[in-house]
């Protein structure tokens, strides 16, 4: 039995380790589905969120959420962009490079803002990729 548990632990440990710093660590109440963000943006709120694309520049240049700014995944670039903002400023992060559990970018970006004390950060939950879960849904994109 002990050998079985040891074997199981060896098999599972890498999988659990690979989740650290990934999208899987972002609290569920800090996620926003694409449909909800689309609705929010369509309402043209008086205090619109700062939307940061924290993934690939090539993807951003092809198509991005209107109003979104590119910082890429670089923590220094993210910190510089939010340096002058109130800690309660609404911020939305997104990437969409890969399936949610495989995205290497949104988890660290969220952690960067959380460590800085930002309290109103949401992350766009992109299940597959930006093409599938945003562009293909007919939600607006800018080029």
């Amino acid at each position: 039995m002990r050998k079985l548990f040891t074997l199981l632990a060896l098999l599972i440990a890498p999988a659990l380790h690979s989740q650290s710093g990934t999208a899987l660590n972002i609290p569920t109440d800090h996620l926003i589905p694409p449909a909800e963000l689309n609705t929010l943006l369509a309402q043209k709120p008086a205090n619109p969120p700062l939307i940061l694309q924290v993934g690939s520049k090539m993807m951003y240049t092809q198509a991005h959420i209107p109003g979104a700014e590119y910082t890429g995944p670089n923590a220094d670039a993210i910190k510089a962009r939010v340096a002058a903002l109130s800690k309660s400023a609404p911020i939305i992060l997104y990437c969409g490079c890969c399936p949610w559990g495989r995205c290497p970018n949104v988890g660290p970006a969220y952690a960067t803002l959380a460590a800085l004390g930002f309290t109103n950060v949401k992350v766009l939950y992109i299940e597959n990729d930006f093409g599938t879960d945003w562009a293909a849904k007919g939600y607006p994109v800018a080029h």
Binding site: N25, I26, P27, T28, G101, Y125
Partner: peptide, 17 residues
């Protein structure tokens, strides 16, 4: 706060234990 979602925002949190 809850953590480690495996699905959409309202999904049940993963119990790694």
């Amino acid at each position: 706060m809850t953590s480690a979602p495996t699905g959409p925002p309202k999904a049940t949190p993963l119990r790694t234990s």
